[in-house]
Design a protein around this nucleic acid. Sequence first.
DNA 1: AATTGCCGCAACCGCCCCCCA
DNA 2: TTGGGGGGCGGTTGCGGCAAT
Length: 253
Amino acid sequence: MGRSPCCEKAHTNKGAWTKEEDDRLIAHIRAHGEGCWRSLPKAAGLLRCGKSCRLRWINYLRPDLKRGNFTEDEDEIIIKLHSLLGNKWSLIAGRLPGRTDNEIKNYWNTHIRRKLLSRGVDPSTHRPVNESVPDAKTISFAAVIKEEEKIFRGFDHCNRDKTQILERCPDLNLDLQISLPSINQEAIPPLRRTSLCFSCSLGLRNSKECRCTSSSSNSSSNTSSGVGTVGGLDFFGFKSRVLDYRSLEMKYN
DNA sequence: AATTGCCGCAACCGCCCCCCA
DNA sequence: TTGGGGGGCGGTTGCGGCAAT
C-alpha cells in the first residue's frame, strides 16, 4: 500500500492563486494562526492542497516578507553562506530576515550564478573556474580488506580469523566540526593584525552586529566565543537553534 | 505589428525527517 | 520499537512578461 496523498487531488485547484484565494488564506491564518496545513484548506473554504497553502503563505503572503531587489550586501552574504552550507536554502534564508528559501534559490539560479561565473568563480565549488582540482582520493575499506584477504590466503595454516583483519580497520569517528579559519594572530606582525569582525567579513560593515574596534586587542576575544558564535553574533544559529547542526556532522562508527 | 526566444519567478512534485501513538 | 502522518526542503516545471528580430 502506498503513501496516502496529502490531499484530494481531484478536487483541488492548481496554478496561480487568485486574489480571492489569497484573501481567504490570509483571513484564516489571521484568525486561527498557522498550523495543521492539511486541514486548513477545508476550514478556510479553499479548494487547494494544504501544501500549496503553506507555500503560498510562506513564500508570498507572510506579512514579514521583504519584497524587492536584493542588495549588494545580501548578495555577498548569500555567496558566503552558500560556500559554507551549499544548497541549504532554508538555512541561508534563516540568516536573511524577510527572505524565503524559494526566493533565494531562484535568485541564486538566475543572478548569482551568472555573477560568480562572470567573476571567474565556479558557483558550485566557489573556486576559480580554471583552477585545476586535485584528484579526489577515495579510500575504500572494502578494497583494503580484499587486498588483505589476498595476502592472508597464502597463510591459511595460521587459521587467521577475518575479524582479525577487520580489526586493522578500527572504527572511525569522522566528526566534522565547523569553525572560523584559525589565524594565529601572534604570528602576524602587529601592524598587519586585523581586527575585522565576522560581520564585516560578510560585507556587513557598520551593521549593528559589527564588533570591529579601532584597537586590534579585541580581535582575540572574538575567537573565544564558542563554536558558531563570533563576538556574540549568533551566526550559525546555535544559540537560536535555527541551524540543525546535525546536518553538518558526519559520523562513521 | 507580429512572432520568436529568453528569462525570472511562482508553484508543484516527490522525497526525507521528525514526531507521536 | 515501529509505522504512519504531517511538515519541510530541494529540484524542477511551466507560465507570463519582455526584448530582439
